[in-house]
Nucleic acid binder design. Structure first.
Length: 528
RNA sequence: GGGUCUAUGGCGCAGCCAGGUAGCGCACCGGACUUUUAAUCCGGUUGUCAAGGGUCCGAAUCCCUUUAGACCCGCCA
C-alpha cells in the first residue's frame, strides 16, 4: 500500500505550498514572512490569464497561511515596459508614443495618470472584484526609489559572464554585445532605442546611443542622442532576462508562478539569482496559457479577449476562482461558453462540501472540499446557498426578454426549483440573462410542416382567440393534434420550433399564456 | 533549432499533477408511464484510455521511447 498522506486541503495549491516550505527549510532561510509575487503586464489589455497568475499566487499565500506561516502577495506592475503596439480598439494617436515606457504615456481615456495605470487598473479591478488582496507595486516607483540599484550594479559588473550564459542557455546572443539594461533616452523618452554598450562601474553609469531599432517587426527611429545614464537616478530598466532576479532578491520573493511563454527568461533569471546575486531563486510553478477556442473566432474586435470584467457579466466571481483553482496543469482552451458548466460545478462542489452528495473516495472527497474552500478564499459559507441550474436560468432568460427578472423568478417558483425569491437568484438571473443575450443564438433548425400539421395549426390559431385558461390551452392543443391525425409529440415539437426555435421548451399552455395568446396566434399564422 | 502541452465510447470532455472497479454531458436508438412537454424513469454502442516498453500486488494515472496535433521561445516584454 502506498501511504498517500494528504497535505493541507488536498489540492495542488497545498502541495506547492508544502514543496516551497520544504525547500525553504533545506535552504535554511528565515520563514518569518514568505512573499509571493505576481507580475502584471501594463502594456496590453489584461485578460483572464494575467488575472490567473495573481489569483494562483494568492492561493499559495492562503495555503501558506493555512499551514501557519505569514505571507503576502506582491502585485508588481511592470509599467516601465515600452509600448510595442497599439492594442485593438485603442486610438491611433498612441502611435507617437511607441517605445516609450507605458507609465510615461498619457492615458488616452484621461481617467488615469498614464496609459500604464489605465491598463493595470483594469487588472486590479478584476482582482478586487473576485476578492483577491494584494500589495501593489509599480516598476516606475521601484526604479525611481533605487530599490534595485545594488542588484543592477552587480548584474552590470558581471555582464560579460551573464551574456555568455544567456547565449549558452537559450541561444540568445544579443547580450554578448549589449548590456542587459535599457536606459530611457534622456532626449526622446524612448526605451529599447537606447542601446547600452559600456558600464562605468565606479560612477554607476551606463553609456548609450539612441539609434534605430525594430520592435514587433516595426521600425522605430532613434534620435541619435549619445548619453550616460546613472543607474540609481536616471530612468531605465533591466532586460527581462535579468530583471526578475533583481526583484526577487530585492523584495525577498519566495514564490512566483509563470506562463510557459517566459520559461526561458525564468530559467536565466533563476541562474542569475543563484549565481550572480547569491540569493536562491523563488519556488516556481509553470502553467499553460489559455487559448481561444480552436476554430471559433468570435470576432476580430474586442470579443476575443477574455477579461475578468467581461466574464463577470455572465459568471460569478466564484466561477472565475473555480476555473483558476481547479487545476493548473494542462493546456486549456477557454471561452465564455465554459461559464455555465463552471457555475453548475460550483454548486456541485458546495453540495459535496455540505455532505449532500456522497463521495466514496476519501482523497477525492477531501480534495473537492478543499477546492471549495479555496474558491471561497478559505472562508467558506456556513450554510449552502440556493442552487439554480445555470443553463435552466439561461433557457428561461431566453424566453422572457421583458420583465425578465420577475417572470423568470416566477417560473423558477412554479417549477419548484426555488422556494422563495432571493437576491442571489436575482443576480443569477441577471448573469444568465446577459449570457442569453450575448451568446444564445436561436438555433436555426429546419422546420418541416406538412399539410396535416398546417391544418392543425390553423385550427389552433382560431382556438387561441377563445381559450383563456393556461390548462385549457394545453388540453386544446393536445386535442387538436389527436383529432387531426398529428402525433402530439410532433405537434408540440413544431410549436416549440416556431415559437422558440428549439425542439423543446416549457409546458406549452402556461407558456403561451405568458407570452400572450394573440402574439402566439400571429406568429403561428405565418406558417399556415 | 530549443521547449511545453494534448491524445479517453458517435461527438464534446472529466478523471492523470498524491496509482486502487473507466465516468459525465450531448446526440442517436429502444422501452415504460400512455393529456408524456423543464417531461421523467429504464436500457443501449461491451471503450486495445494514440502505439510500444518499464516500475508496481495493481497504471488512463508514474518513468522511458515513438507517432500525430496544438502552442510557446529563438524580436521585446
Amino acid at each position: 500500500m502506498s501511504d498517500t498522506k494528504i497535505i493541507g486541503k488536498g489540492t495542488w495549491i497545498d502541495k506547492l505550498a508544502s514543496e516551497l516550505l520544504e525547500r525553504e527549510k533545506t535552504l535554511g532561510r528565515s520563514t518569518d514572512i514568505l512573499r509571493v509575487e505576481s507580475g502584471l503586464g501594463a502594456s496590453g489589455i489584461p485578460h483572464i490569464g494575467s488575472l490567473g497568475d495573481a489569483v494562483r499566487a494568492y492561493g499559495i499565500k492562503l495555503a501558506l497561511e493555512n499551514l501557519g506561516y505569514k505571507s503576502e502577495l506582491i502585485a508588481y506592475s511592470d509599467d516601465l515596459d515600452g509600448l510595442r503596439k497599439i492594442p485593438e480598439g485603442f486610438p491611433d494617436s498612441l502611435e507617437e508614443h511607441i517605445a516609450k515606457p507605458v507609465s510615461l504615456i498619457p492615458d488616452p481615456y484621461g481617467c488615469h495618470d498614464s496609459y500604464g495605470m489605465h491598463m493595470s487598473s483594469i487588472l486590479l479591478d478584476g482582482l478586487d472584484r473576485v476578492g483577491i488582496k494584494y500589495e501593489f507595486r509599480r516598476a516606475i516607483d521601484t526604479y525611481k526609489q533605487g530599490l534595485l540599484k545594488e542588484q543592477i550594479h552587480t548584474i552590470l559588473q558581471n555582464s560579460v559572464k551573464i551574456g555568455e550564459k544567456i547565449s549558452d542557455m537559450v541561444g540568445q546572443e544579443k547580450y554578448q554585445k549589449y548590456l542587459p539594461y535599457f536606459p530611457v533616452c534622456a532626449n526622446c523618452n524612448r526605451l529599447y532605442t537606447a542601446e547600452a554598450t559600456e558600464y562605468i562601474s565606479g560612477e554607476k553609469k551606463v553609456k548609450y546611443t539612441c539609434h534605430d531599432t525594430e520592435i514587433s517587426s516595426k521600425k522605430v527611429k532613434g534620435c541619435g542622442y549619445v548619453g550616460e545614464a546613472d543607474i540609481s537616478k536616471d530612468l531605465g530598466k533591466l532586460a527581462w532576462k535579468v530583471e526578475f532576479a533583481a526583484r526577487w532578491t530585492a523584495f525577498d520573493i519566495r514564490f512566483e508562478a509563470y506562463g510557459k511563454d517566459i520559461m526561458d527568461s525564468v530559467k536565466v533569471n533563476d541562474w542569475v539569482s543563484d549565481e550572480i546575486l547569491g540569493s536562491p531563486h523563488p519556488h516556481h510553478v509553470k502553467y499553460e496559457m489559455f487559448l481561444d477556442k480552436g476554430g471559433k473566432k468570435i470576432s476580430k474586435s474586442l470579443g476575443n479577449v477574455i477579461t475578468a470584467q467581461k466574464w463577470l457579466e455572465f459568471g460569478s466571481p466564484k466561477s472565475i476562482l473555480l476555473l483558476l483553482y481547479k487545476r493548473i496543469t494542462g493546456a486549456r482552451e477557454l471561452g465564455f461558453e465554459d461559464i455555465p458548466s463552471l457555475m453548475n460545478e460550483y454548486n456541485e462542489l458546495e453540495d459535496i462540501y455540505f455532505g449532500r452528495i456522497k463521495v466514496d473516495n476519501q482523497a477525492k472527497l477531501i480534495k473537492s472540499k478543499g477546492l471549495y474552500e479555496y474558491v471561497n478564499l478559505l472562508n467558506p459559507p456556513k450554510q449552502p446557498s440556493t442552487h439554480v441550474n445555470y443553463r435552466l436560468a439561461v433557457e428561461l432568460a431566453k424566453i422572457f426578454k421583458e420583465d425578465r427578472e420577475q417572470r423568470v423568478m416566477k417560473k423558477l417558483l412554479d417549477y419548484g426549483a426555488i422556494k422563495k425569491a432571493e437576491p442571489e437568484i436575482e443576480k443569477l438571473i441577471e448573469l444568465a440573462g446577459n449570457y442569453s443575450n450575448e451568446f444564445d443564438q436561436q438555433e436555426k433548425s429546419q422546420i418541416t410542416i406538412d399539410h396535416t400539421i398546417k391544418k392543425a395549426l390553423k385550427i389552433l390559431v382560431n382556438a387561441l382567440d377563445a381559450e383563456e385558461e393556461p390548462e385549457d390551452i394545453q388540453n386544446t392543443i393536445y386535442q387538436i393534434a389527436k383529432s387531426n391525425d398529428v402525433q402530439p409529440k410532433d405537434f408540440f415539437k413544431t410549436l416549440y420550433q416556431i415559437i422558440l426555435g428549439t425542439s423543446r421548451g416549457p409546458k406549452i399552455g402556461p407558456f403561451i399564456s405568458d407570452i400572450g395568446r394573440k402574439q402566439v396566434a400571429k406568429t403561428l399564422s405565418e406558417y399556415t
